[in-house]
Nucleic acid binder design. Structure first.
Length: 423
RNA sequence: GGAGGGAUGGCUGAGUGGCUGAAAGCGGCGGUCUUGAAAACCGUUUUCCGGCAACGGAACGUGGGUUCAAAUCCUACUCCCUCCGCCA
């Protein structure tokens, strides 16, 4: 969420961000509502001041045994007026807040302006894409042969685009989770947390999934709960409505969670096998930082995600999302895509974003400066470190051998009881 | 599911109709002392909104209500704790 004051002062900037993102948000309407709000507020407050003064006077009169009847009668109607104004004000506040929830974040100056998905800028490539002396297979064929993934039975249990991991498939999943968490906690200084996988409406609004993306989430209607689409939601909301100490920043958390996404409207292309499923595991990194450090922290966050892929020996590229592709809460975002040799294409396994104070303002996450004792919003960042399903895709496809077995990268050996090959 | 208790500032916790935005303690910040630190002592310290400012307004879990006036009374809801039951 943006500050209404900021929108008022930097209207041009806000409108530009809306335009660059190719969105339609009526900023002028918001400013008009705010104008009306402030005028009502002024009236209401003047009356309240009158009432407060009278109250003190009534109290004094009564104590002195004098008659306060006239004043009380007068205040009766004043209070009535105040109530009417407050009701109006309440409505308008709600309306304004609702509108503000749909205003996207300002973009960082290094976020490229784009006209389509093609305008994302590749900034880095790492690793050699594997060469084969045979035709490499897609992971669903490899997995079927090894009997480690079972999509048919998963669909019996839940529906299409779910996956049942079996035997060494399940084992590999668990190994990856442990491996990633270990690296982030032991090498990168993150604190591990394990959160609820369900979040309420307030939490979902805090990180920006609501109100725009309600259709994309699984919802438990009776309780108005949502299955989390990413651990970003519960982890960022750990500190909702809190004032943090400057000395405690940056706060860095890492968490494993399953992620649930309805993926409505994304059928057809690129959805085979594990490419796009309704439930996948992910290890997430979340940071709460001081504003002046957030872009530096974004780089280190990206580096932390890259470390995982390097250790897993998975070739990848890093792209900067352009203004059309970036999520509406983010100011800048890097995507990491790994190479899937069996399908000859890149697969997104991580998004590393700086939200600046956008989420912090929505979720009311602040910190107190030690010197000045001033309270400010923190900056929040998060990044996948990394998403598991597509990592499994790449591991299977890139490390496949002609006989249908798959070699396991060295870094995972200790997590697989020393096993070097899945066969 | 049943029975009780509770929700107040960064934290603990007093406060049952006007003198309470709120005692006290802790913590934070500034200072005295000290070579420096600790201790001790002194001062200071809720947040948000409107306003250039002076200043004004609001907030004691949330929403309604009573009243000239509500942290305080009524009401519904949410969450937390204890005990009992059930259960992974």
């Amino acid at each position: 969420m943006l500050d209404i004051k900021f929108i008022k002062e930097k209207t041009g900037l806000v409108k530009k961000a809306v335009k660059d993102r190719n969105m339609t948000v009526d900023i002028d309407e918001i400013l008009a509502i705010d104008e009306e709000r402030r005028s009502l507020l002024g009236n209401a407050e003047a009356l309240k001041q009158k009432r407060n003064t009278a109250s003190t006077e009534i109290s004094r009169l009564k104590k002195d045994g004098e008659d306060a009847g006239t004043l009380i009668a007068e205040m009766r109607s004043t209070s009535q007026k105040i109530k009417e104004l407050d009701d109006k004000l309440g409505d308008i506040d709600k309306k304004l807040h609702q509108k503000l929830l749909f205003v996207p974040n300002i973009l960082h100056k290094t976020t490229p302006i784009g006209k389509s998905e093609k305008d994302n800028v590749e900034i880095k490539k790492w690793g050699e894409t594997p060469k084969f002396s045979f035709t490499p297979k897609p992971h669903w064929e490899i997995a079927k042969h090894l009997d480690i993934l079972d999509f048919e039975r998963a669909s019996k249990i839940a529906g299409s685009h779910f996956c049942l991991y079996k035997g060494l498939g399940a084992r590999l999943e668990r190994a990856l989770i442990n491996f990633m968490l270990d690296i982030h906690t032991k090498k990168h200084g993150y604190k591990e947390v394990s959160t609820p996988f369900i979040a309420n409406r307030l939490s979902m609004t805090g990180t920006g999934q609501l109100p725009k993306m309600e259709e994309d989430m699984y919802r438990c209607e009776i309780d108005d709960f949502f299955l989390i689409p990413t651990a970003e939601v519960p982890v960022t909301n750990i500190h909702r409505d809190e004032i943090l100490k400057e000395n405690d920043l940056p706060i860095c958390y890492t968490a494993y969670s399953p992620c649930f996404r309805r993926e409505s409207g994304s059928y057809g292309k690129d959805t085979r096998g594990l490419n796009r499923v309704h439930q996948f595991d992910k290890v997430e990194m979340v940071k709460f930082v001081k504003p002046e450090n957030s872009y530096q922290e974004l780089e280190s966050l990206l580096g932390n995600a890259e470390t995982i892929l390097r250790q897993l020996e998975l070739p990848y590229r890093v792209i900067v999302l352009n203004t059309l592709d970036i999520s509406f809460a983010a100011a800048k975002c890097y995507d990491i895509e790994i190479w899937g040799a069996g399908q000859s294409k890149y697969l997104e396994v991580s998004s590393c974003s700086n939200f600046e104070d956008f989420q912090a303002r929505r979720a009311n996450i602040r910190f107190r400066r030690k010197q000045t004792e001033k309270i400010e919003f923190v900056h929040t960042l998060n990044g996948s470190g990394v998403a598991l399903a597509r990592t499994v895709v790449a591991l299977l496809e890139n490390n496949q051998r002609e006989d249908g077995s798959v070699s396991i990268p060295k870094a995972l050996h200790p997590y697989m009881d020393g096993m070097e090959v899945i066969e």
